[in-house]
Simulated scan of single mutants.
Amino acid sequence: MAFHNSRSTLGVLFTTLVLFGVLVAVCIPSCTAQANFTTTDYENIQVALNLEYLEAVYFLWGAYGYGLDNLTPHLTEGGPKPIGVQKANLDNLTRDIVAQLGLEEIGHLTILQKELGRYYFPRVQLDLSEANWAKIIDNAFGEKLNPPFNPYKNSLNYLISAYTIPYVGLTGYVGTIPLLQGEGAKALVAELLGVEAGQDAVIRTLLYTVKDELVPPYKYTVAEFTEKISSLRNNLSHAFVDEGLEVPKSEGADGLVTGNILSANTYSLSYARTAKQVLETVYGTGNPSIPGGFFPKGGNGTIALGYLKS
C-alpha cells in the first residue's frame, strides 16, 4: 500500500512538473510582452504620436524649409504632405534651436516606429498654413488681428506659435503615465516626457526674456500673447491646465512671484491632460469628435478614431 501511494505521489508530481513546464513555455513570452507594452499602452501612446508628427513637421520646416519627406521619408509611411508649412524667417540663434527641436522629433518618431510596431500609423494630415495659424491666434484673442498673425514672418512670431505645441504634448504625457501598465511603456513615455518638457522650457525661456515687449505691429505684449493662448487651451480642454508667462502672485511659485517661467500647479507640479483633452485642444474645437485646427481630418490611432466615429 505504501509503495502504491509513493507511485501515485510521483505520478502527481510528474504531471505537475509537466504542466508547470508548459505554463512556463507559454507564459514567459506573453509575460515579457506584458511587462513591456499592453494593448492599452499602445493605444494611449498613439495619441501622442499625432503630436510628435505635428512637432516634427513644424520645427523641421521652420528651420530648414523641408521636413520628413526629405530627411526621413520612411517615418511618414506614405502619409499626406502637410498643408501650407514653410520655412520661417529666423535669426541664426532661433534657427539653430528650432533645428535641434526638429531633429529631436525625428528621434522620437524613430523610437515610436520601433516600439509601436503595427500600432505606428502613417503621418496624418496637418494644416500649418498662414491662414490656419491666423485663425488660431484670432480665436485666442477673440478678435481678428490686423494684419493676420503670420508665424513665419520673424523669430518672435515663430516662437509664439511654437509656444502652442510642445506644452500640450507634455501635459498629455503626464496624463498618460498613470494609465500605463507595461514597464517598457512607462520607461518610453517618461523619456519622451523629459524632452518634451525641455522643449517647452526652452521656448518659454526665450519668450520670457522679452515678455514685456510689444509684438509688432500689435498692441499686445509677448506675455499677453501667451496668456491668451493658454486661456484658449484651457477653454478647449475644459479644465485649468495651462498658464502663460505671467500669473497673479497667488498663482506663482510658492505664491510669491508673478513671473511664470514654467507652467505648474500650486505645488509646482506639471498639469496633466487626458487623451480626450489633448484632442479637444489640438483640434481647436473643444470636441474630440470634431476635427479641425492642426488636424483638419482628425488624428489617427484607436482612441482618436473612436471619438471621430462617435
Rank of each mutant, 00 (worst) to 15 (best):
N92W: 14
T94D: 10
R95M: 14
R95S: 15
I97D: 07
I97E: 07
V98T: 10
A99L: 06
A99E: 12
A99R: 13
L101H: 07
G102P: 02
E104H: 15
E105R: 07
E105A: 10
G107A: 06
H108P: 04
T110E: 06
T110D: 09
I111W: 09
L112A: 10
L112M: 14
Q113R: 15
E115H: 08
E115I: 05
L116Q: 06
L116S: 05
R118P: 03
R118A: 10
Y119A: 13
Y119V: 04
Y119L: 06
F121R: 11
F121M: 08
P122F: 14
P122R: 05
R123D: 08
R123I: 07
R123S: 09
R123K: 13
V124F: 12
V124T: 15
V124E: 10
L128S: 02
L128H: 07
L128Q: 01
E130P: 04
E130I: 15
E130H: 11
A131N: 13
N132Y: 09
N132G: 13
W133M: 03
W133S: 09
W133T: 06
A134P: 08
A134W: 01
A134E: 08
K135I: 11
I137S: 01
D138K: 04
N139Y: 13
F141E: 04
G142W: 07
G142E: 00
G142K: 04
G142A: 03
G142T: 08
G142M: 11
K144F: 13
L145N: 02
L145V: 05
N146A: 11
N146L: 15
N146F: 15
P147L: 11
F149V: 04
N150H: 01
P151T: 01
P151N: 01
P151E: 03
P151A: 00
P151S: 04
P151Q: 00
Y152W: 09
Y152F: 14
Y152I: 10
K153S: 12
K153V: 14
K153N: 12
K153C: 07
K153Q: 11
N154K: 03
S155D: 09
S155N: 04
S155F: 13
L156F: 00
L156D: 02
L156V: 09
N157G: 02
Y158Q: 03
L159T: 01
I160P: 04
S161P: 01
S161D: 08
A162R: 03
Y163E: 09
T164D: 13
T164Q: 13
I165S: 02
I165H: 00
P166Y: 07
Y167Q: 11
V168A: 05
V168E: 05
G169Q: 06
G169L: 03
L170Q: 13
L170M: 12
L170C: 12
L170N: 10
L170S: 11
T171D: 01
T171K: 13
T171V: 14
G172I: 11
G172E: 08
G172H: 09
G172W: 10
G172A: 08
Y173G: 02
V174N: 05
G175R: 08
G175S: 14
G175K: 06
G175V: 14
T176N: 05
T176V: 11
I177V: 09
P178C: 01
L179A: 00
L179P: 01
L180K: 00
L180Q: 00
L180G: 00
Q181G: 15
Q181L: 08
Q181T: 15
Q181C: 02
G182Y: 05
E183G: 14
E183W: 15
E183Y: 15
G184V: 11
A185D: 05
A185L: 06
A185S: 07
